[in-house]
Amino acid sequence: MSDKTKNLLSSLIFNVAETILIFLMGRLLSLPVNYIIIIMLTFMISRGCFGKVLHFKTWYRCLVWSLLILLSLFVLLKVDLVVSIMFAIFSAFIMTGRSNICDMYLWTGKVSKYDALKNFVSISPNHPILLEHEEYWRKNYPMRYEIFQLYFRENQTYEYIAKLKGFEDNTVTKRECATIYSILERPLGLPPVGK
């Protein structure tokens, strides 16, 4: 079994287990099954629709916080279904990059100059062009492959990658990210990287 299949399988198992746990939590609060499903679907679909979904870096954080967010929505469901739906949409919006704050003095509104590719990867993780390049890098440029995985797929920071890989600074990571972007820019129709 290849690494990719293993990753896909484990993430599938995790997501199914997480969904079941959330559902059971709703049942523990004695909520009607259809209401629980409505809230879960509203949250998941809205999050997908807003785009730029933010992911937790570890599975246990994802599990704990997803459970708590949905629990808080289920508590609101005790009051009113419409209120709970509204809060589910708002919660979904907050858990995406769309709710980033743009402060004119402290924040440029741009997380990374490679945002376009990061967003592309999060929306279409199994795009054939991405998979094809990944496979090629895995065989011929293992370092590039690893940096792609860490930076673009897992949204890790330069500092984290440097620490993990034992780099002295971020030069290697930055250079590889620039190369990856320039390689994928045209085939994926990404905008030119900002200076």
């Binding site: 933010l54 992911h55 937790f56 870096k57 954080r61 916080w65 708590l68 967010i69 629990l71 808080s72 919660s91 907050i94 858990m95 709710s99």
Partner: peptide
């Protein structure tokens, strides 16, 4: 982390 901070706020 930003994601955790947002989740705390939401809950």
């Amino acid at each position: 982390k930003s994601t955790t901070f947002r989740a705390v706020n939401l809950v």
